[in-house]
Structures are given as structure tokens and as C-alpha cells.
Computed example of a mutant assay.
Amino acid sequence: MAAVAQHAIPFSRPATPGHAVYNIGFYGLGSMGYFMARNLAAHRAANTGSGPLFVYNRSSAKCVQLQKELGADKVRIADSAEQLVLECDVVFTSLASDAVVKAVYEKFADALKVRHHGKPIGAPTDQKQDSRGNEHDLPDAGSSGELDTILSNIPHTHLVTGPVFGPPAAAEAAKLICVLAGDYRSKKEVAHILVPAVGRKAMDLGGNLEKAPTFKLIGNSMILGSLEILAEAFTLSEKTGISASQTYELVKDMFPAPPFINYGNKMVTDSFDGKTGFAIDGGLKDATHVRRLVTEFNSPMPVVDAAHAHMLTARAIHAEQIRRNSAAYEVIDWSALIAGTRVAAGLDAFDSAQEVC
């Protein structure tokens, strides 16, 4: 197994003989989930000698693609969500919305209840540890308690909330930061499955399931703030006759953090394709969750308010372009919020090559 820095996993290895090689499942092969599942399957095959990763996706094409890429010895396609949860000891999910998350976990719970119904008391049962590994499109932190209620009455079943930090490129490179909250033993098992197979580091947010998604929102608020700062600086640069690309060079020298580098490049090159990044609808949802959180705790974040407004502006302009069949992209990335600052300053929303109005 690849060497991992001691600080990368805040948990000791599960004790032998308690530690076992589990059957692991993965539900959701979207822009993040595909890479996470691929890396997990490849790492397990190379380092643990375990069986294939079970995968399931509403669209089976992604499952077939992954199996073809890695081979049937590393990836097995489940026929249903119910089969996935019944045949696996640990199930990871990467899902699109609150409604989808709830529906999927209700299916899991129904299947597990049927499994346990009618068994003699004390009969052997599998330990199920469900971890939500979702990158950006994060369900509301309060929904974690609802999911726990759905699963908590099922014997030997534990929920671990597990959002991750990093864009699809970081998922592809297995460089995500994994944040875990929930039952301690379950987190310990999950952390050693995820690092280094999927991420470079795991963080422990304690036993309260809501803490991990709350922490994710705090992190995303910083990314939103970074986007807003970049958008305002690049727009001012263009208005003063200094190209945004020159200001971007300063960003790379002075602030070489991934959000500044990656999203700054998208802004200066007008690369707003949401299908290869993080769609603006997801950014608006995150901003809405953050604004609800700051309202609850009386902790203002005006930069998030500004970013939210500029994303709304960008989405409205893009929707009109779609109506007129003039949109460059079917879906726009949340870095397109720069359209809000550009329009306010009299510039073209999505084309930085246009002259100042």
C-alpha cells in the first residue's frame, strides 16, 4: 500500500482481527463520483487483493464505461440500489440533490429492513456504513439528521457524512480532502478506505453528523469569496486598460492557491463550460445554504451575498442566450459569476474580448 503521511488520517488502523476487507459499493458516477469510484477500484485491486468494487448509477452507461476501462475483475455493476446495499458492507454515494439523496437512502433502508425482518434475534448481520462522498452539490446540513433517522433503526448500520473538497481534476488525481463525521469506528474504517485511494487527507469533525456538511459549506464560502474577489479584480483591470491576463499573472505569483489558479484561468480565458467544472446551479444552491447558515448564527458574510447576486445575474443572461440560441455553453460554470461584475461595469458578460461600453 502506498505510504501515507501520519497526519493525513486522524485515526489509527482498525485493530486486527477486527479489520477486514469489505465488499464496497459506490452509487453515483457523475463528474466527481466517476473518478472517485475509478480510483477506489484500481487502488483496492492493486493493494488489498480484494474483490471488485460494486457500482450503480441511474444511467448504466457510466457503469459500463468504468467496467470497460478497468475490467470486470475490478468493477462489478449492481442491478439496483437495493442489490448494492445488500451485497456491500460499505456504500459510498455521490448524489445530485437533497431529493435524490433522500430517495436513495430510503431505498437503502427499505432493502435492509427486509433483509433483517424475520431473522432470529442475534442472528449474524452485516455492518453497513454509508458515507456520502459528494463534492460541491451538497445537501443541507440539517438533512443529515433526517438520513440518520432513516437508517438508525436498522441493526449494525451507521451513517457517516463524508463531503470532499476539490474539483474533478483533484478527484481524478486522488488528491481530494475528505471530511468525516459520525460513528467513530465507522469513520476509522471509512478513512482508511478513502486515503490514499481517493483523497490525500481525511479530517475528523466528530460524532455530530451535521458538522461535516456544515464544514463543507464553510469551505465553499471561502471558494465563493475567492471567485468574487477575482471577478472584481479582473473587471477593474479591464476597465483601467490593464488586461485581466496580466492581473492573473500576479495572482499566480502572489496567491498560488488552487481556487485562485484554477478559477482565475477560467475567468481570463472565458472558459465557462459547466459540464467540465461546477455548474452555476450548484454554486447558487451552496450560496443559499451558506446564507441560511449565517442567518441562523448571526454571522454575516457579505462577500457570499455579492457572489450569490452575481451568479443570479450570470444565470439570467445565460438563460436569455439559450432562448436566443446564442449561448456558447449548455451549462455554465460558477466562475461565470464574473458576468455580474462585468455587466455592472459596462462590459460584455461572457466575452472579455469585447470593447468597453
Rank of each mutant, 00 (worst) to 15 (best):
N57M: 09
C88N: 13
I242C: 08
D286V: 14
I317P: 02
Q83M: 13
V290Q: 00
Y105N: 05
F26Q: 12
P300A: 01
Q6D: 13
A42E: 08
G283C: 09
Q321F: 11
L312D: 08
M301A: 13
D273V: 07
V160A: 02
V190C: 02
F255R: 01
A15K: 15
G264D: 01
K211N: 12
L224Y: 07
R200Y: 00
A244Q: 13
V114N: 00
V160M: 10
A61Q: 11
A202R: 05
G346E: 11
F165G: 00
F92I: 08
L176G: 08
N208L: 01
D204Y: 09
A15G: 03
A309G: 11
H7V: 08
Y263T: 02
V198Q: 04
E320D: 14
I24D: 06
W334Y: 15
G122I: 11
V303W: 04
M1I: 04
P124M: 12
V164I: 14
P14Y: 08
S237A: 15
A174P: 01
F234D: 01
M311D: 14
I332M: 11
I223Q: 02
I193P: 03
A170E: 12
R44K: 13
P213S: 05
A345Y: 08
T276N: 12
E249Y: 02
F54G: 00
K239V: 08
R58E: 03
K74D: 07
N57V: 07
P256N: 05
H19F: 12
L230C: 09
A20Q: 15
T93C: 09
A327N: 04
R342F: 12
L250V: 15
S152A: 13
D98C: 07
V100S: 10
F215P: 00
F255H: 08
L230T: 08
K128E: 02
E189W: 10
A8V: 10
T235E: 04
D98M: 06
E146P: 02
P120V: 01
L29M: 06
D73V: 00
H136D: 01
N47M: 03
A279T: 10
A212Y: 05
L66D: 10
D140M: 10
A78S: 15
A103L: 01
F350E: 04
L337S: 13
K102I: 13
E320G: 02
T93K: 02
S97A: 15
T269Y: 04
P10F: 11
E296G: 03
A202W: 04
S326G: 05
I218H: 07
G219W: 12
L217A: 06
P213W: 07
A202P: 03
C357Y: 05
T16G: 00
P139S: 01
K74Q: 15
V100M: 11
A345P: 08
L84T: 06
E228K: 13
V331C: 05
P10L: 11
K266V: 01
